[in-house]
Design a protein around this nucleic acid. Structure first.
Length: 273
DNA sequence: TTTGGTGT
């Protein structure tokens, strides 16, 4: 056989191999990997696949959620919690809402009711109070600590953000359980509430929906001026939340799983409404 | 329904 013929055969085999690898083997491998992601690796109650890796956060563990609080910005940088259907269907123990500082933290290092009064900004829950029901009175009370509160514009908190939170609750009712990480983001310009509490530019929310062994990640970024109720407009990849906030999420996932998981643009499950 | 506000 002539050299040229050998080369042709070799190239044909190579091309067939590459086609097989990229279009059959690799997609199948990735699909398998996603279905193999195991929550038993995550030992923490409120956190899936490792604590967020974040600068300047002081960690507070509560019955229903964990907060990474920034004692300079006087905002949580992230809060994380697990949400189950039975919590949402469960009983509410608290009739009134009472915002309060966390008694375990020095008052100078956290926001206070006076910072928000007549400021025009709502005391915005990050771990939703409605997500803390079905557990205990303590759980609901702790969600009103300022370690779980960020300034939110009224319209944003009560409409756009509320709409997203209700959507995540609705999705949770259709899955086995959900892990939620949510927090504010800030640009370089510092706006303060009563010269103390930094006003965020917007908020992110990551929700990992689990059904059986499969995980459906979702991520949203909404600036404080957002008014649309079309949530598709706010969907982003987890990577883009990381570059916006400087926080590394799910670092306990192996890189081979974390990279494809976090880089994808994440569509809302079909027929979610 | 839940998200909040102010004033007592």
């Amino acid at each position: 056989m002539r050299f040229k013929t050998k080369l042709k055969i070799f190239l044909i085999i190579l091309i067939i191999f590459m086609l097989w690898y990229f279009f059959i083997y690799k997609p199948r491998l990735e699909k398998q990997k996603l279905s193999e992601m195991d929550i038993s690796d995550s030992k923490q109650k409120h956190i899936l696949w490792g604590y967020p890796v974040c600068e300047n956060d002081m960690i507070f563990e509560y019955e229903g959620f964990v907060s990474g609080y920034d004692t300079v910005k006087l905002n949580p940088l992230w809060v994380s919690y697990n949400l189950k259907k039975e919590y949402l269907k469960g009983q509410k123990f608290l009739k009134e809402r009472k915002f309060a500082p966390d008694p375990s933290l020095d008052k100078d290092l956290q926001a206070a009711n006076e910072d928000y009064t007549k400021s025009g900004y709502d005391r915005g829950h990050l771990a939703r109070q409605a997500d803390m029901k079905g557990r205990s009175k303590k759980c609901e009370l702790e969600s009103c600590f300022f370690t779980n509160i960020s300034p939110q514009k009224q319209d944003f908190n009560r409409e756009t953000w509320n709409n997203l939170e209700r959507a995540v609750d609705d999705l949770t009712m259709r899955y086995d359980e959900t892990w939620i990480i949510t927090g504010p983001y800030f640009d370089d310009e510092i706006d303060l509430l009563k010269k103390r509490v930094e006003i965020p530019d917007g908020f992110y929310k990551i929700a990992i929906l689990r059904k059986g062994k499969t995980f459906h990640p979702l991520a949203f970024v909404l600036d404080m001026e957002s008014q649309s109720t079309d949530l598709e407009k706010y969907t982003v990849s987890i990577d883009s939340v990381e570059s916006l906030t400087g926080i590394d999420f799910f670092h306990e996932l192996a890189d081979s799983l974390e990279n494809p998981f976090e880089s994808k643009l994440l569509p809302i499950p079909y027929g979610w409404k």
